[in-house]
């Protein structure tokens, strides 16, 4: 199924939107890594669903970051985006930063969300859980904390390694756009746990057992806070779950969203 990329206008912001497939609408909210290219797992999902893959403001070629000041601004933007897709209700899968964003959307507009899947999600801080600072410009460290197998081919190729890498400019933009909403408080909203009870959609949490960035304990905290919620744990899997375990990721999506 071929995907299509276009620039759409969302409440005055020029937004890159890639979409493909047929079936019920499924919105994929990407992580701080800015994975806005159509990858194999998007392609697989598009065999059953109409997958929407927007780039958040400031990521890829999306504009509009100047009026995004915090995660709520980004959540309202996403609500505007859903409206401009012509959807009155849809399922959302959010990965990492995108998971946090999906939770914020589901809190602000519970009736908009058919089903919700949060993968390795940001959004909560627990006092006893340490997580590395992924805003440090230490790409070697990033590789080690993001992936369960930091020396594998996937991990080695994921992050641009030199100023000459053509992906570097997009990588720097992704870091800036993530820092805008997640620098401080670091990848969380202190008020989020108190609002999780407002989420109405059936929710699945998907976590890698070895996630170092947002450890499994955060998944447990989401599970306790969201009313209709289950947590699935993937073994031998780090933070980059959709990339590390694409087949499991797609299978869980299908079982949950069908």
């Amino acid at each position: 199924m071929p995907s299509q990329s276009s620039i759409i206008e969302v409440a005055g912001r020029k937004i890159q939107l890639t979409q493909g497939g047929q079936g019920a609408p499924l919105l994929y909210l990407h992580s701080a890594a800015g994975e806005t290219d159509w990858t194999a797992f998007h392609e697989q999902l598009s065999r059953r669903y109409h997958v929407y893959l927007p780039a958040h403001p400031g990521f890829a070629v999306s504009g509009g970051l100047e009026s995004i000041h915090d995660i709520q601004d980004l959540a309202w933007h996403t609500i505007d985006l859903i409206a401009s897709l012509g959807c009155s209700r849809l399922s959302i899968v959010g990965f990492s930063l995108g998971g946090w964003l999906a939770a914020e959307v589901a809190i602000l507009r519970p009736a908009l969300v058919e089903k919700l899947m949060l993968v390795s999600s940001a959004g909560i801080r627990l006092p006893d859980v340490r997580s590395p600072d992924i805003f440090l410009d230490d790409r070697e460290m990033l590789r080690r904390v993001l992936f369960h197998d930091p020396d594998g081919e996937l991990a080695r190729n994921f992050i641009p390694q030199s100023a000459q890498d053509e992906r570097m400019l997009l990588w720097i933009r992704a870091r800036e756009a993530s820092a805008r909403v997640a620098w401080n408080p670091y990848f969380h909203n202190p008020k989020l746990p108190g609002h999780l009870r407002r989420i109405q959609a059936p929710t699945m949490l998907l976590w890698g057992r070895q996630d170092q960035v947002f450890p499994l304990a955060l998944g447990e905290a989401f599970r306790k806070g969201i009313p209709d919620c289950q947590l699935k744990i993937l073994e031998n899997c780090g933070h980059m779950l959709p990339f590390e375990k694409p087949d499991d990721f797609v299978r869980h999506c299908q079982e949950f969203f069908d």
Partner: peptide
Amino acid sequence: VVLPPGYTSARSVAAIGK
């Protein structure tokens, strides 16, 4: 020389790196 994200424009960050 540490350039946190967004501290200066993406193009400047790339230029300083070089």
